[in-house]
Amino acid sequence: MKRSIAVFIVLLGFPLAMSAIDNLFYVSFASRVIIYAIAATSLNLVLGYGGMISFGHAAFVGAGAYAASICIAEGVASAWLGWPAAIAASALAAWLIGAVSLRTRGVYFIMITLAFAQMAFYLVNSMKAYGGDEGLPLPQRAELGLGLDLGNEVVFYYVVLFFLALSLYGLHRVMQSRFGRVVIAIRENEARAEAIGLPVYRYQLACFVIAGAVAGLAGALLASHGKYVNPNVLHWVQSGTLMIMVILGGVGQLWGGAIGAFVLLGLEHVISDYPLPWLAAVAPNYPQHANLGVGLVMLAVVLFAPHGIAGLLSRRRGA
Protein backbone atom coordinates (compact mmCIF):
# COMPACT_ATOMS: atom_id res chain seq x y z
CA MET A 1 0.00 0.00 0.00
CA LYS A 2 2.79 2.42 0.94
CA ARG A 3 4.55 1.61 -2.29
CA SER A 4 1.40 2.19 -4.30
CA ILE A 5 0.98 5.61 -2.74
CA ALA A 6 4.60 6.44 -3.43
CA VAL A 7 4.19 5.48 -7.06
CA PHE A 8 1.13 7.69 -7.36
CA ILE A 9 2.92 10.65 -5.83
CA VAL A 10 5.62 10.29 -8.47
CA LEU A 11 2.97 10.00 -11.18
CA LEU A 12 1.23 13.10 -9.86
CA GLY A 13 4.43 15.10 -10.04
CA PHE A 14 5.42 13.87 -13.47
CA PRO A 15 3.60 16.50 -15.62
CA LEU A 16 4.94 19.30 -13.43
CA ALA A 17 8.46 18.13 -14.05
CA MET A 18 7.79 17.79 -17.77
CA SER A 19 6.18 21.23 -17.96
CA ALA A 20 9.23 22.64 -16.24
CA ILE A 21 11.47 21.31 -18.99
CA ASP A 22 8.79 22.10 -21.56
CA ASN A 23 8.39 18.55 -22.83
CA LEU A 24 4.70 17.92 -23.21
CA PHE A 25 5.29 15.05 -25.61
CA TYR A 26 6.13 12.90 -22.63
CA VAL A 27 2.97 13.87 -20.82
CA SER A 28 0.97 12.69 -23.81
CA PHE A 29 3.04 9.54 -24.10
CA ALA A 30 2.55 8.82 -20.40
CA SER A 31 -1.21 9.23 -20.85
CA ARG A 32 -1.11 6.54 -23.50
CA VAL A 33 0.87 4.23 -21.24
CA ILE A 34 -1.61 4.83 -18.42
CA ILE A 35 -4.57 4.06 -20.66
CA TYR A 36 -2.94 0.78 -21.65
CA ALA A 37 -2.26 0.16 -17.98
CA ILE A 38 -5.99 0.45 -17.30
CA ALA A 39 -6.81 -1.93 -20.14
CA ALA A 40 -4.17 -4.42 -19.02
CA THR A 41 -5.35 -4.18 -15.41
CA SER A 42 -8.87 -5.05 -16.54
CA LEU A 43 -7.53 -8.05 -18.40
CA ASN A 44 -5.59 -9.06 -15.32
CA LEU A 45 -8.89 -9.34 -13.44
CA VAL A 46 -10.08 -12.00 -15.89
CA LEU A 47 -6.77 -13.62 -16.69
CA GLY A 48 -4.82 -13.38 -13.48
CA TYR A 49 -7.42 -13.40 -10.75
CA GLY A 50 -10.15 -15.27 -12.57
CA GLY A 51 -7.90 -17.74 -14.35
CA MET A 52 -9.85 -17.30 -17.59
CA ILE A 53 -7.38 -17.02 -20.45
CA SER A 54 -9.21 -14.59 -22.69
CA PHE A 55 -7.52 -13.98 -26.01
CA GLY A 56 -10.05 -11.41 -27.14
CA HIS A 57 -9.81 -8.54 -24.72
CA ALA A 58 -9.08 -6.04 -27.48
CA ALA A 59 -12.70 -6.49 -28.60
CA PHE A 60 -13.86 -4.73 -25.43
CA VAL A 61 -11.31 -1.97 -25.71
CA GLY A 62 -12.46 -1.61 -29.29
CA ALA A 63 -16.16 -1.63 -28.43
CA GLY A 64 -15.55 1.20 -25.98
CA ALA A 65 -13.32 3.11 -28.37
CA TYR A 66 -15.87 2.90 -31.18
CA ALA A 67 -18.88 3.66 -28.99
CA ALA A 68 -17.17 6.77 -27.62
CA SER A 69 -15.91 7.83 -31.05
CA ILE A 70 -19.28 7.41 -32.67
CA CYS A 71 -20.79 9.63 -29.99
CA ILE A 72 -18.23 12.34 -30.76
CA ALA A 73 -18.57 11.90 -34.53
CA GLU A 74 -22.33 12.27 -34.19
CA GLY A 75 -21.85 15.52 -32.34
CA VAL A 76 -22.32 14.28 -28.78
CA ALA A 77 -18.98 15.28 -27.37
CA SER A 78 -19.86 15.17 -23.68
CA ALA A 79 -17.79 12.59 -21.84
CA TRP A 80 -20.69 12.20 -19.43
CA LEU A 81 -22.62 10.56 -22.24
CA GLY A 82 -19.84 9.13 -24.37
CA TRP A 83 -17.94 7.31 -21.65
CA PRO A 84 -20.94 5.64 -20.03
CA ALA A 85 -22.00 4.65 -23.54
CA ALA A 86 -18.57 3.13 -24.09
CA ILE A 87 -18.75 1.25 -20.82
CA ALA A 88 -22.25 0.02 -21.60
CA ALA A 89 -21.29 -1.10 -25.11
CA SER A 90 -18.28 -3.03 -23.98
CA ALA A 91 -20.08 -4.54 -21.00
CA LEU A 92 -22.81 -5.69 -23.35
CA ALA A 93 -20.24 -7.15 -25.74
CA ALA A 94 -18.53 -8.89 -22.84
CA TRP A 95 -21.81 -10.27 -21.63
CA LEU A 96 -22.70 -11.70 -25.03
CA ILE A 97 -19.25 -13.09 -25.72
CA GLY A 98 -18.76 -14.34 -22.18
CA ALA A 99 -22.13 -16.05 -22.03
CA VAL A 100 -21.19 -18.28 -24.96
CA SER A 101 -17.45 -18.62 -24.36
CA LEU A 102 -17.69 -19.56 -20.70
CA ARG A 103 -19.42 -22.77 -21.65
CA THR A 104 -16.10 -24.00 -22.98
CA ARG A 105 -12.91 -24.65 -21.10
CA GLY A 106 -9.16 -24.61 -21.50
CA VAL A 107 -7.74 -24.13 -24.95
CA TYR A 108 -11.22 -23.99 -26.44
CA PHE A 109 -12.01 -20.97 -24.29
CA ILE A 110 -8.84 -19.25 -25.46
CA MET A 111 -9.78 -19.89 -29.06
CA ILE A 112 -13.45 -18.98 -28.87
CA THR A 113 -12.70 -15.63 -27.24
CA LEU A 114 -10.20 -15.06 -30.02
CA ALA A 115 -12.80 -15.95 -32.62
CA PHE A 116 -15.33 -13.52 -31.22
CA ALA A 117 -12.77 -10.76 -31.15
CA GLN A 118 -11.95 -11.46 -34.78
CA MET A 119 -15.64 -11.18 -35.61
CA ALA A 120 -15.76 -7.82 -33.90
CA PHE A 121 -12.63 -6.80 -35.80
CA TYR A 122 -14.17 -7.61 -39.16
CA LEU A 123 -17.46 -6.05 -38.21
CA VAL A 124 -15.91 -2.67 -37.47
CA ASN A 125 -13.84 -3.03 -40.61
CA SER A 126 -17.04 -3.10 -42.58
CA MET A 127 -18.68 -0.17 -40.80
CA LYS A 128 -18.33 2.10 -43.82
CA ALA A 129 -20.34 4.87 -42.18
CA TYR A 130 -17.67 5.16 -39.50
CA GLY A 131 -14.55 4.93 -41.59
CA GLY A 132 -14.44 1.22 -42.29
CA ASP A 133 -10.89 -0.07 -42.50
CA GLU A 134 -9.48 3.43 -42.67
CA GLY A 135 -10.65 4.36 -39.24
CA LEU A 136 -12.47 7.35 -37.93
CA PRO A 137 -10.70 10.65 -37.23
CA LEU A 138 -12.36 12.71 -34.51
CA PRO A 139 -12.74 16.47 -34.60
CA GLN A 140 -11.93 16.78 -30.91
CA ARG A 141 -11.50 14.94 -27.63
CA ALA A 142 -14.49 14.31 -25.39
CA GLU A 143 -15.69 17.26 -23.29
CA LEU A 144 -15.69 16.83 -19.56
CA GLY A 145 -17.02 20.23 -18.47
CA LEU A 146 -16.23 21.21 -14.88
CA GLY A 147 -13.75 23.69 -16.28
CA LEU A 148 -11.47 20.84 -17.35
CA ASP A 149 -10.24 21.00 -20.94
CA LEU A 150 -9.29 17.50 -22.06
CA GLY A 151 -7.58 19.05 -25.07
CA ASN A 152 -4.90 20.14 -22.64
CA GLU A 153 -2.34 17.33 -22.31
CA VAL A 154 -1.75 17.90 -18.63
CA VAL A 155 -5.45 17.89 -17.79
CA PHE A 156 -5.95 14.77 -19.89
CA TYR A 157 -3.07 13.11 -18.09
CA TYR A 158 -4.59 13.75 -14.68
CA VAL A 159 -7.94 12.44 -15.81
CA VAL A 160 -6.51 9.14 -17.06
CA LEU A 161 -4.35 8.91 -13.97
CA PHE A 162 -7.48 9.28 -11.88
CA PHE A 163 -9.04 6.37 -13.74
CA LEU A 164 -5.95 4.21 -13.28
CA ALA A 165 -6.00 4.92 -9.56
CA LEU A 166 -9.68 4.09 -9.47
CA SER A 167 -9.14 0.84 -11.37
CA LEU A 168 -6.32 -0.30 -9.14
CA TYR A 169 -8.11 0.64 -5.95
CA GLY A 170 -11.26 -1.02 -7.27
CA LEU A 171 -9.37 -4.18 -8.13
CA HIS A 172 -7.79 -4.19 -4.71
CA ARG A 173 -11.15 -3.75 -2.98
CA VAL A 174 -12.98 -6.26 -5.12
CA MET A 175 -10.37 -8.90 -4.44
CA GLN A 176 -10.94 -8.53 -0.70
CA SER A 177 -14.69 -8.81 -1.10
CA ARG A 178 -16.90 -11.87 -1.14
CA PHE A 179 -16.99 -11.70 -4.91
CA GLY A 180 -13.21 -11.56 -5.19
CA ARG A 181 -12.72 -14.53 -2.89
CA VAL A 182 -15.13 -16.54 -5.02
CA VAL A 183 -13.41 -15.56 -8.26
CA ILE A 184 -10.05 -16.66 -6.90
CA ALA A 185 -11.51 -19.85 -5.47
CA ILE A 186 -12.91 -20.72 -8.88
CA ARG A 187 -9.49 -20.20 -10.42
CA GLU A 188 -7.96 -22.47 -7.80
CA ASN A 189 -10.48 -25.30 -7.97
CA GLU A 190 -13.50 -24.86 -10.13
CA ALA A 191 -15.14 -28.22 -9.50
CA ARG A 192 -14.87 -27.83 -5.75
CA ALA A 193 -16.21 -24.29 -5.88
CA GLU A 194 -19.34 -25.57 -7.58
CA ALA A 195 -19.50 -28.46 -5.11
CA ILE A 196 -19.69 -26.13 -2.12
CA GLY A 197 -22.62 -24.37 -3.72
CA LEU A 198 -21.14 -21.59 -5.84
CA PRO A 199 -22.73 -20.97 -9.25
CA VAL A 200 -19.38 -20.85 -11.05
CA TYR A 201 -20.71 -19.75 -14.41
CA ARG A 202 -22.49 -16.69 -13.04
CA TYR A 203 -19.49 -15.46 -11.10
CA GLN A 204 -17.18 -15.98 -14.04
CA LEU A 205 -19.56 -14.14 -16.32
CA ALA A 206 -19.85 -11.25 -13.87
CA CYS A 207 -16.08 -11.06 -13.64
CA PHE A 208 -15.81 -11.12 -17.43
CA VAL A 209 -18.37 -8.33 -17.80
CA ILE A 210 -16.74 -6.09 -15.19
CA ALA A 211 -13.39 -6.48 -16.91
CA GLY A 212 -14.99 -5.78 -20.27
CA ALA A 213 -16.60 -2.62 -18.95
CA VAL A 214 -13.31 -1.27 -17.62
CA ALA A 215 -11.62 -2.15 -20.91
CA GLY A 216 -14.35 -0.17 -22.64
CA LEU A 217 -13.51 2.88 -20.56
CA ALA A 218 -9.87 2.46 -21.54
CA GLY A 219 -11.00 2.30 -25.16
CA ALA A 220 -12.95 5.53 -24.83
CA LEU A 221 -9.92 7.25 -23.32
CA LEU A 222 -7.69 5.85 -26.04
CA ALA A 223 -9.92 7.22 -28.80
CA SER A 224 -9.99 10.65 -27.19
CA HIS A 225 -6.26 10.58 -26.66
CA GLY A 226 -5.40 10.03 -30.30
CA LYS A 227 -8.54 11.77 -31.64
CA TYR A 228 -8.71 8.76 -33.91
CA VAL A 229 -9.91 5.20 -33.82
CA ASN A 230 -9.34 2.40 -36.32
CA PRO A 231 -10.11 -1.31 -36.50
CA ASN A 232 -6.59 -2.21 -35.46
CA VAL A 233 -7.50 -1.58 -31.82
CA LEU A 234 -9.47 -4.81 -32.12
CA HIS A 235 -6.87 -6.81 -34.01
CA TRP A 236 -5.83 -10.06 -32.36
CA VAL A 237 -2.29 -8.79 -32.05
CA GLN A 238 -3.72 -6.11 -29.73
CA SER A 239 -5.36 -8.79 -27.61
CA GLY A 240 -2.04 -10.56 -27.61
CA THR A 241 -0.23 -7.39 -26.61
CA LEU A 242 -2.56 -6.85 -23.66
CA MET A 243 -1.97 -10.43 -22.58
CA ILE A 244 1.75 -9.91 -22.91
CA MET A 245 1.54 -6.83 -20.71
CA VAL A 246 -0.23 -8.80 -17.99
CA ILE A 247 2.10 -11.77 -18.20
CA LEU A 248 5.15 -9.55 -18.37
CA GLY A 249 4.03 -7.45 -15.43
CA GLY A 250 2.69 -10.22 -13.27
CA VAL A 251 -0.38 -12.41 -13.58
CA GLY A 252 -2.76 -11.95 -10.68
CA GLN A 253 -0.64 -9.21 -9.13
CA LEU A 254 -2.30 -5.88 -8.41
CA TRP A 255 0.27 -3.85 -10.33
CA GLY A 256 0.93 -6.50 -12.96
CA GLY A 257 -1.01 -4.90 -15.81
CA ALA A 258 0.34 -1.44 -15.12
CA ILE A 259 3.94 -2.58 -14.87
CA GLY A 260 3.59 -4.59 -18.06
CA ALA A 261 2.15 -1.64 -19.98
CA PHE A 262 4.89 0.62 -18.72
CA VAL A 263 7.68 -1.80 -19.53
CA LEU A 264 6.41 -2.87 -22.93
CA LEU A 265 5.53 0.57 -24.28
CA GLY A 266 8.54 2.14 -22.61
CA LEU A 267 10.88 -0.42 -24.07
CA GLU A 268 9.47 0.06 -27.56
CA HIS A 269 9.87 3.78 -27.26
CA VAL A 270 13.34 3.76 -25.80
CA ILE A 271 14.71 1.36 -28.37
CA SER A 272 13.26 3.20 -31.34
CA ASP A 273 13.85 6.79 -30.20
CA TYR A 274 17.06 6.63 -28.22
CA PRO A 275 19.72 5.02 -30.40
CA LEU A 276 22.68 3.80 -28.43
CA PRO A 277 25.77 5.27 -30.11
CA TRP A 278 27.82 2.09 -29.91
CA LEU A 279 25.03 -0.07 -31.27
CA ALA A 280 24.14 2.44 -33.96
CA ALA A 281 27.76 2.38 -35.06
CA VAL A 282 27.48 -1.34 -35.82
CA ALA A 283 23.88 -1.40 -37.01
CA PRO A 284 22.70 2.06 -38.00
CA ASN A 285 19.14 0.95 -38.70
CA TYR A 286 18.55 -0.96 -35.52
CA PRO A 287 15.96 1.42 -34.02
CA GLN A 288 13.65 0.41 -36.86
CA HIS A 289 13.81 -3.11 -35.53
CA ALA A 290 12.75 -2.26 -31.98
CA ASN A 291 10.51 -5.29 -31.88
CA LEU A 292 13.54 -7.53 -31.98
CA GLY A 293 14.65 -6.13 -28.64
CA VAL A 294 11.12 -6.24 -27.27
CA GLY A 295 10.82 -9.87 -28.31
CA LEU A 296 14.12 -10.81 -26.74
CA VAL A 297 13.17 -9.15 -23.46
CA MET A 298 9.83 -10.95 -23.47
CA LEU A 299 11.52 -14.25 -24.11
CA ALA A 300 13.98 -13.60 -21.31
CA VAL A 301 11.12 -12.85 -18.93
CA VAL A 302 9.38 -16.15 -19.71
CA LEU A 303 12.53 -18.15 -19.37
CA PHE A 304 13.97 -16.45 -16.31
CA ALA A 305 11.13 -14.68 -14.46
CA PRO A 306 8.15 -17.00 -14.48
CA HIS A 307 6.11 -14.75 -12.19
CA GLY A 308 6.61 -11.60 -14.22
CA ILE A 309 8.28 -8.41 -13.20
CA ALA A 310 5.95 -7.79 -10.24
CA GLY A 311 6.94 -11.27 -9.07
CA LEU A 312 10.60 -10.34 -9.27
CA LEU A 313 10.04 -7.15 -7.32
CA SER A 314 8.09 -8.78 -4.53
CA ARG A 315 10.56 -11.63 -4.25
CA ARG A 316 13.38 -9.14 -3.91
CA ARG A 317 11.43 -7.44 -1.14
CA GLY A 318 10.74 -10.74 0.59
CA ALA A 319 14.40 -11.71 0.56
Binding site: R173, S177, G197
Partner: peptide, 14 residues
Protein backbone atom coordinates in the same frame (compact mmCIF):
# COMPACT_ATOMS: atom_id res chain seq x y z
CA UNK B 1 -19.92 -17.87 2.55
CA UNK B 2 -21.31 -19.97 -0.29
CA UNK B 3 -24.20 -20.98 1.93
CA UNK B 4 -24.90 -17.67 3.65
CA UNK B 5 -26.35 -15.30 1.13
CA UNK B 6 -25.15 -14.00 -2.19
CA UNK B 7 -21.52 -13.43 -3.00
CA UNK B 8 -22.36 -10.66 -5.44
CA UNK B 9 -20.91 -8.23 -2.96
CA UNK B 10 -18.05 -6.38 -4.54
CA UNK B 11 -16.86 -3.76 -2.11
CA UNK B 12 -17.13 -4.82 1.50
CA UNK B 13 -14.07 -6.78 2.64
CA UNK B 14 -14.84 -10.36 3.68
Amino acid sequence: QARSGSSFSFWRPV
